[in-house]
Design a protein around this nucleic acid. Structure first.
Lengths: 130, 130, 130, 130
DNA sequence: GTGGTCTAGACCACC
DNA sequence: GTGGTCTAGACCACA
């Protein structure tokens, strides 16, 4: 598991960390039940604040990606991630709509856009090394 | 032209406004050279501050979607929007990657994801009413 | 004499008009004592407001480039333009300083910068057609 | 770092501030990676509004001179400023043309004009104290 | 503490 | 009337 953060991005650090862990699960680097580093050690490894790691973990727990045991530490949720529900579809569309709108304005065809999506899917399937 | 803002959303109002205008261009509600409302009148219509509208307009200008004349007001860029370049592709991928990662985790198949994209494209082609 | 205005520039129209007339004098298209169009006719020719032409003319008069006779109309100042004084040198430096600072930051050498200046001088000497 | 603003000037304050910072970089007072004062503290120091400082910073960021970290504050861009491109040359010429035109009208020779430019270059090289 | 966002109200330049 | 600038003060997100 390799986590790459961009401290100059406009995306908050905790969001980047969350996305990296989700990406790890998506490409099967992290599997159900597997242990994650403790808040403390991950913060030290990445050179970031404890609170930042904690915020990422709390949100991952909230969204069902991980479990946080007081003693056993942090593990990927053994039962897998909750399936997509109505809420998730709505949220996904809200994310994609502006992206697609801008792409249309900039002259991308539907085929090109879908092809970019497929490339990314392919990357996860092959277990891309970030 | 119908602009719908969600004041409860986490997305800044000026960003929502920007996206709504880009969506308007994408579905051809707004065409090249067409005039947009003045900063003040749009702010009044939407019940927001004129600086918020101005910020959205400034960013749209910056990204090549509109032109701002000191006196004549604001118009959709007559020459169309700059085509997608390297930067845009990179940015687009950065947007899509976390979205796709999460979808994979939540059990969406590639086909389902692409189908959602296609629906949104279809919406723009048909001139969806928001 | 050919005047080209850019209605989408951020420079005010009256400033552009002023600069075009000064450029005309610089490349000897307009010579001392020569008549300029009336405010009214120039405004009609260019498709701009009377006040805009008038403002340009007033500033040119103020700075000694033209004379405005109530009856005879507008003429290039017969005695030529006032020579550069202390004030002008100071103003010129204030204009050049930020331009040169940015050029240095962007990696232009002094030679390149001066060479650009020389090109522009050459353009005026050859009576460039804008 | 010493910033001098002229509140009587026609040039907007945020523009003056921007130019002062660029000048600071040009004469190596500010070097790559160096931290700049926070929006609030600089505003307090200069006796201006924090939004005015912010506007200057945003434009400097936009043009690649600085980086703005959400928490760490503002630093001179570590990779240096983007090199001059086609656009910059065009813009530079548009700036210089009116200046040179007026200088010709006022009787400055090409040599005098270039000599003034050289003086300003010299000033930056020697690390002029404003 | 930092910057980001939003509001409110003022005055000015331009046409 | 238009947008541009500046001020003032508020609350939030981030680390």
């Amino acid at each position: 598991m390799f986590i790459q953060l961009d401290f100059e991005s406009k995306k908050p650090i905790y969001t980047q960390l969350k996305h990296e862990i989700i990406a790890g699960i998506a490409r099967k680097d992290l599997s159900a039940g597997e242990a994650l580093p403790s808040v403390r050690s991950l913060a030290a490894d990445l050179g970031i604040n404890l609170h930042t790691v904690n915020k990422a973990y709390q949100q991952l727990k909230q969204e069902g990606f991980i479990l946080i045991h007081r003693q056993k530490g942090v593990v990927i949720h053994p039962d897998g991630v909750p399936e997509a529900g109505e809420d998730y579809y709505a949220e996904l569309k809200e994310t994609l709509r502006p992206s697609i709108a801008e792409s249309i304005c900039r002259g991308l065809s539907e085929e090109e856009y879908l092809s970019i999506c497929q490339d990314i899917f392919k990357g996860f399937k092959e277990g891309e090394k970030k």
